[in-house]
Write a protein that binds this DNA or RNA. Structure first.
Length: 430
RNA sequence: GUGAGUGUAGCUCAGUUGGUUAGAGUCCCAGAUUGUGAUUCUGGUUGUCGUCGGUUCGAGUCCGAUCUCUCACCCCA
């Protein structure tokens, strides 16, 4: 008989385990996301973690298949694990059609999958907060989304000097390209998107390669370099460009008068890769680490239409948990405290039955209660109570306690008291 | 898909030009302390040195391959 050593199981590439200490951080992030989303009146929704492959290829083309997890199920259907939430959202909206009262604001925290090589801030499995406002073309939808974003980041403890929400407009870029007479915008956008990454020379070369003149290329560069609306005003002249600029101006007015002026900035170098954006686009940058992007979004007025539904204008945004956690860690804003436990039930004589019974009494009163699981010395019981983050220890057999009363100790103060369950309950609520 | 770096205890890391039985801190466990936790002291467990092969009398150390993770490129929804 031969014994082969079993290989220990391995974590799949690009995925994470969430031990309790990691889960606390995850919950902290999710709780904040959810709390602020609800505060702004967004309602939560969910969809399946896998969809028909066509839902994603229909929107983004066949190349996307190499970047997602897909398989054929036992019924021969082409299935993909969702790499983003927006197509699912569009499907939900199209299915219900006119039954949904518009406009409406929804949010979700989907688990997403992308088949790509893991690196800093990018994994194969991650979570992403999605906020979407659908059914209105009003600029207040953008204002709502951006103020919710800023509120969240501030609520996490970041300062307005730590990040900036860069605001741009696909509409302005499109009308300006038209104004200066360039070839189709679809061809130009990918180059614009890479402007900062590739540098001025490569940028000019790339524009020349798709047929733009030196003059056109310089004009584009000038527009994208603008740091204020005033500067842009000097460059644009066509009525449609001016209209697009007015929209940005409105958005800045609303956000500034609401108190978010410190969190936002005009940044026309933001284009975003997605083809479906039609209006305002924005990205959140960490001002610390080489301006990495933390979140991004924009207006997509024709997405539902493109997927075969009625026209439902919308604006949405996504914020990933991986980069956000990195950012919060850099600023030392992640929680370090352990689980919070109200009570730990202990016994001098290690009377397990009494411990178990007493724990249940306090649980029925609504407290979070723990206790030893086997008879161990009092010193060990105290150590456990401390380790588990208990506020107080209740002793089931304290000799100073009368019938119906317990000795209890406040672990943070080190003080001993005696009282009934009711009295302990009041003590904890103080 | 391309390139660079990395891998020694659960974790952070030492380990001499190749030389006996691979170390420290931390964590964990037990005791000092049989009616009381965070400090302190004492003792203890923990390893296919990522894996496979090669060179050598001898490999954690040198060579090759492979895997892993990290970082960057591509891409970025």
């Amino acid at each position: 008989m031969t014994t082969t050593k079993v290989q220990p199981p391995q974590l799949p590439k690009g995925t994470r385990d969430f031990y309790p200490e990691d889960m606390r951080i995850q919950n902290f992030i999710f709780d904040t996301w959810k709390r602020i989303a609800l505060r702004f009146g967004y309602e939560e929704y969910e969809g399946p973690m896998f969809e028909h492959l066509e839902l994603f290829t229909g929107k983004s083309g066949d190349e996307i298949v190499s970047q997602l997890y897909n398989f054929e199920d036992k019924g021969g259907r082409a299935i993909a694990l969702r790499p983003e939430m927006t197509p699912t959202l569009a499907r939900l909206v199209i299915q219900k059609g006119n039954a949904i009262k518009k406009p409406f604001k929804w949010f979700s925290i989907p688990r997403l999958f992308r088949y790509e090589r893991a690196q800093k801030g990018r994994l194969r499995e991650f979570f992403q907060l999605n906020l979407d406002v659908l059914g209105t073309e009003s600029i207040y939808a953008e204002a709502d989304l951006i103020s919710a974003t800023a509120t969240m980041l501030l609520d996490f403890g970041l300062k307005s000097t730590d990040f900036v929400i860069g605001i741009s407009s696909r509409k302005l870029l499109a009308t300006y390209l038209q104004e200066i007479g360039t070839p189709s915008a679809d061809l130009v956008y990918p180059v614009l998107d890479r402007r900062l990454k590739i540098g001025p020379e490569a940028f000019a070369e790339a524009l020349a390669a798709i047929g733009l003149s030196t003059e056109q290329s310089q004009k584009i560069d000038a527009l994208m370099s603008c740091k204020s609306i005033e500067e842009v005003k000097k460059l644009v002249s066509s009525p449609s460009s001016i209209e697009a600029l007015h929209e940005i101006e409105d958005l800045f007015d609303i956000l500034t008068s609401t108190g978010f002026g410190d969190c936002i900035g005009l940044d026309l170098s933001i284009v975003r890769g997605l083809a479906y954006y039609t209006g305002i686009v924005f990205e959140v940058f960490d001002k610390g680490k080489a301006m990495r992007a933390v979140a991004g979004g924009g207006r997509y007025d024709s997405l539902c239409e493109k997927l075969g539904g009625a026209k439902v204008p919308g604006v949405g945004f996504g914020m990933g948990d991986v980069v956000l956690a990195d950012l919060l860690r850099d600023h030392d804003l992640l929680p370090t405290q352990k689980q919070t436990l109200d009570l730990f039930i202990a016994s001098f004589s290690t009377d397990m039955k009494q411990i178990f019974k007493t724990a249940n009494i306090f649980r029925q009163m609504g407290f979070n209660v723990s206790h030893p699981l086997s008879p161990i010395k009092l010193g060990k019981q105290m150590e456990l109570a401390n380790q588990q983050g208990a506020t107080c220890v209740v002793y089931v057999d304290g000799e100073n306690a009368k019938e119906g009363e317990f000795e209890f100790k406040d672990l943070s103060k080190g003080t001993m008291n005696v009282g009934s369950a009711q009295r302990i309950s009041e003590y904890l609520k103080q």
